[in-house]
Design a protein around this nucleic acid. Structure first.
Length: 543
DNA sequence: ATTAGGG
DNA sequence: CCCTAAT
């Protein structure tokens, strides 16, 4: 019986044109025999649909509803431009009954040739497509028509991987009450593979006709494992409410898209063309002036209505995506010349926010003037003018120190985006800082890092207590390691970082010894090296 | 949030 | 410096 019906349907389909109502071909129940003739079906449908005109527009207006109402009112009216503008499809749209063929998604689109599908795609999305994949086109069109559809469903359920449409007669309001038997009669052979199909468990809004339902369902059932990534994105955008993507998500997306865009000649532009944002993916490689090698590149991505600029470098970072060119510049100073503008325009995110969030107790905030001067082939010298840096005068001759100290400090006039992660790749410890640290340890004791930071590092907002602890550990190591070898003189000239003066190291040793003695922490083996070598100024009174 | 410790 | 566990 079923076969028979289907065969009939096939026949009808082959004979009929696109405006064949899908309901008639999906009917599996003998109860639907009344619809054997598609014309009859359509004729029946018409009064019902026109009666829908009174459907309140304000009631959950979405694209589909708009569309439906428009179709119902006047078939070629201005409201349903999607229909009326279709070249081949619109032919079937007479003034007598609305054309729901488009809404029928796969079923009716099945009959389209690729060219027609492309045309439909064009009128749906307002742009051309060169895709020849029929399936893809169908799904795209259906998706486009159901995009952002909210599916307020009250009259169909899912059962046995089928969407069971609850509908009594065509368009009767009491279809909500109809018998299950009748409901089964209209069950669609739509398999919802997606686990989210449970979401459809609710029933559809009773304002919808079965045709509309079928259209929606076709659009919404993400049952195809499409290979196309962008298509999947599109689907998700349409099927779910988008949530603001997390940083991690952006990163991963970045990774994915990088692969995608490098592997094949990407055609991803077309996704976002209709977006509100100018979010055509832009690839902006930054090349080294000399080697012309790509160092990094960024491009815009738009996810769920949010536009981001994501450097490809992010792929290598597992967290805390780099937002700041400064970070990159630290590693690729040669690229600075290409990014001076960016460097000037981009605020120092980390310090800006760090100051605000972490150190309220800042007594004196050094005001700096950041000057970028491009010299030669990308060699940039950072000149920081520190107006208020106490006790650092002895270091000013070292560009590195001054640089590491406050270069990216508080000079930003732009508001620092909040929540920007503290990302300090490398900020060399200045002698000043080391002294302060040692002083703090001497005063407050090792281990009370937060206190030291608060009291002794008030003006160094970028040093956290963890930093202090780490530095102290390193100092300790250095002091212990360096002491027996006594070859610090050799390292002195080579080290790029600040060579820690011997007195300080000795002092560190002393302090360490002291700490262990008074010690909360019994770890004598660490400081097994006998501490006695007397040095100038080594006494604890010095700092 | 702070600290300690491994990486 | 980063990360994480422990507190």
């Amino acid at each position: 019986m079923l076969q028979k019906v289907k065969q009939e349907e096939q026949l009808l389909l082959s004979g009929e044109s696109f405006n064949h109502p899908p309901k008639c071909m999906t009917i599996e129940d003998p109860a639907s025999e009344r619809c054997k003739n598609s014309k009859a079906c359509n004729n029946k449908l018409q009064p019902e649909i026109t009666s829908r005109e009174i459907m309140p527009r304000s009631l959950e207006l979405n694209s589909i509803h708009d569309f439906e109402v428009g179709s119902a009112e006047t078939c070629s009216g201005p409201t349903n431009e999607a229909v009326s503008s279709k070249s081949s499809i619109s032919e079937s749209c007479t003034s007598l009954f609305p054309d729901f063929s488009i809404l029928r998604g796969e079923i009716c689109l099945d009959n389209f040739s690729i060219r027609e599908l492309q045309e439909a795609f064009r009128t749906t999305f307002g742009r051309q497509t060169s895709v020849k994949d029929k399936l893809w086109l169908k799904r795209r069109i259906a998706m486009g028509l159901t995009n952002s559809c909210h599916v307020p469903s009250t009259s169909f359920t899912i059962k046995d991987n089928k969407i069971i449409l609850s509908e009594a007669k065509e368009g009767e309001p009491e279809r909500l009450q109809q018998s299950k038997n009748e409901a089964e009669s209209l069950s669609m052979n739509i398999h919802l593979i997606n686990a989210s199909s449970q979401d459809f468990k609710t029933t559809l809004n009773n304002n919808m006709t079965d045709q509309q339902l079928s259209g929606k369902r076709l659009g919404l059932s993400p049952s195809n494992h499409d290979v196309n990534d962008e298509n999947c994105q599109m689907e998700h955008c349409a099927a779910k409410r988008m949530r603001k993507p997390t940083k991690r998500y952006i990163e991963e997306l970045s990774e994915l898209e990088t692969r995608e865009c490098t592997a094949k000649s990407y055609s991803c532009v077309k996704i976002s063309e209709r977006s509100h944002f100018p979010s055509k993916r832009q690839i902006k490689p930054v090349c080294d002036g000399k080697t012309q090698r790509r160092i990094f590149s960024t491009r815009h991505i738009s996810v769920g209505g949010f536009s981001f600029e994501v450097p490809y470098v992010l792929r290598t970072r597992r967290r805390q995506p780099r937002k700041n060119f400064v970070d990159l510049m630290e590693y690729n100073p040669a690229t600075i010349s290409h990014m001076v503008k960016a460097a000037v325009m981009i605020p120092a995110l980390e310090e800006g926010s760090g100051n605000g969030s972490r150190s309220r107790e800042i007594v004196s905030v050094p005001v700096q003037i950041l000057q970028l001067s491009v010299a030669g082939e990308g060699d940039v010298k950072m000149n920081t003018k520190t107006l208020n840096c106490e006790e650092d005068l002895d270091l000013h001759h070292k560009g590195l120190d001054a640089n590491g100290d406050t270069t990216y400090g508080n000079a930003n006039t732009q508001p620092a985006p909040k929540g920007s992660a503290r990302r300090k790749h490398h900020r060399a410890w200045t002698l000043c800082e080391v002294r302060k640290l040692v002083d703090g340890v001497a005063k407050y004791g090792a281990g009370r890092w937060s206190e030291i930071r608060r009291l002794a590092f008030a003006s160094y907002s970028y040093r956290t207590s963890v930093d202090l602890k780490d530095k102290w550990r390193n100092l300790l190591r250095a002091s212990l390691a360096q002491y027996p070898t006594k070859k610090e003189a050799k390292n002195f000239g080579k080290q790029t970082s600040v060579p820690i003066p011997t007195p300080i190291l000795s002092q560190v040793r002393e302090l360490a010894k002291l700490q262990t003695q008074t010690g909360i922490k019994p770890s004598p083996k660490k400081f097994a090296g006998r501490g006695g070598r007397p040095l100038q100024g080594e006494g604890s009174g010095f700092l």
